[in-house]
Write a protein that binds this DNA or RNA. Structure first.
Lengths: 240, 240
DNA sequence: CGACACATTGAATTTTGTCAAGACCTGTGG
DNA sequence: CCACAGGTCTTGACAAAATTCAATGTGTCG
């Protein structure tokens, strides 16, 4: 939202995303949540921050680490609806209950802010609007993935999502044709990936094995993958 | 359309939030967009309001009618990502381009507002935050549908969305056991429904025929359906 | 009436899921 | 250092679900 970016970008300094690695988060020049009060907590990996159905009292900003939001059906089927990165805000609630469970994927620092503070600040409102708009765009793309993409396209899209500046519709291709590799860390188990992509764990595993067999990726550890040919992978996302 | 417009004006509290007062889709809960300036236009059914990729210059509020937002893959696959109702706002953009195409399903009245006017009003910001939060919740539920539900569950969920105050996780059941019927108008072709539910037109048609055969619904016209037993249908949504 | 778009149905095919082993990795304790 | 226990992950065979392709119906509008 250009009109928001202008203001926020100038009024507050950009903030370096903590946590090295993925660097996937596009540079979001948000004002830090901290300037509005509240407190920061440290969570271990796989800790629940709140459960779907809990009374919504706080808003959260992910300072470092990774958080997923998911919903469960009564029979145990799970859908991971968002995977959040540093700078993202979560805990929005249309009713007075959280509509998803929030759980860390890896150890994370999270800043919390009482919901009652939100109405007061126009700055904060603008920040929220911008963040929500961005998340909405991601959700739209994810709906395409879930509704219309094959298993291979889903996994390829997922991997490409972890390569900064590549994989979108507007991807420009490799900067250097001869050296189009990249290392990524998933920070997610096969089960979490499957629940995010709307597949089963076995299907995810099979697709990964297949990409390996075809020489497109190398699996160093289950959650650490080297992409030999980013561009080939990009061709498999359904965007081209 | 008659029933929907009536209901929406009075009690319909958002596509999927039974009562609850979340009520974002209730036009009366907020100052109309009109009080912030801009103009209202009338669109015929199946008119494009803007295309994915167009420069994002305006925000829109649906006053009456129905609008869908969809995305296309290069090979023609389409995913309808949102179906909007009166009171909903659309045209948000995280970058400076619209990320979806917006098209009316039926003839609609739409109020437009220049994006530059948005910064000025704190009240408008609040309205946007509220509306975005609600749409996000709907998108989360839709992700569950697309990622984890069977064809029957998807169609049942879709039909239940159109019954005010029923079909959510917390659905209370029929007010009157002996008379649990309801008439709905879809305002969508089979193709649009299929693209919304992540299915093919044939699968949607087969599921509808099957529900008909089992005496759960009656198809008066392709887009006008009587639900004989709302509660039975509700049992098929995957929420129970 | 006839043309056209939309919807339905059936049969064959493809994709993904299910179930059941088996392999691998990692940390623990002998 | 090795064995092994308990996860997680991978693989294979089979089943189920949904898609594809090809007719066939149905309704609307000139």
């Amino acid at each position: 939202m250009a009109y928001l970016e202008r203001e926020l970008g100038t009024q507050f300094g950009g903030r370096n995303s903590p946590g090295a690695g993925a660097g996937v988060a596009d540079p979001k020049a948000y004002a830090s949540f901290a300037s509005f009060g509240g407190k920061t907590s440290k969570y271990d990996g796989h800790s629940v921050i709140y459960f779907e159905g809990d009374a919504a009292r706080r808003l959260y900003e992910l300072s470092s680490g990774t958080v997923m939001l998911f919903k469960l059906l009564p029979d145990g089927r799970r859908q991971v609806v968002e995977v959040l990165r540093p700078g993202d805000i979560f805990g929005f609630s249309a009713a007075d209950e959280y509509d998803c469970t929030a759980e860390t994927l890896i150890s994370s620092e999270i800043h919390e802010l009482d919901l009652r503070l939100v109405d007061g600040s126009a700055e904060l409102q603008r920040k929220l609007t911008k963040c929500l708009t961005n998340q909405m765009k991601v959700l739209h793309e994810h709906a395409v993935l879930l509704g219309r993409k094959s298993a291979v396209e889903r996994v390829a899209s997922f991997l490409m999502y972890l390569v900064p500046g590549r994989g979108g519709t507007e991807c420009v291709g490799p900067a250097d044709e001869t050296n189009d590799g990249f290392d990524i860390e998933l920070h997610m188990t096969r089960q979490e990936i499957a629940d995010y992509l709307g597949l089963t764990i076995e299907t995810v595993s099979r697709v990964v094995s297949d990409l390996k067999r075809r020489g497109i990726i190398r699996v160093d550890r289950a959650d650490r993958i080297h992409l030999h040919k980013v561009c080939s992978l990009c061709q498999m996302t359904g965007f081209h």
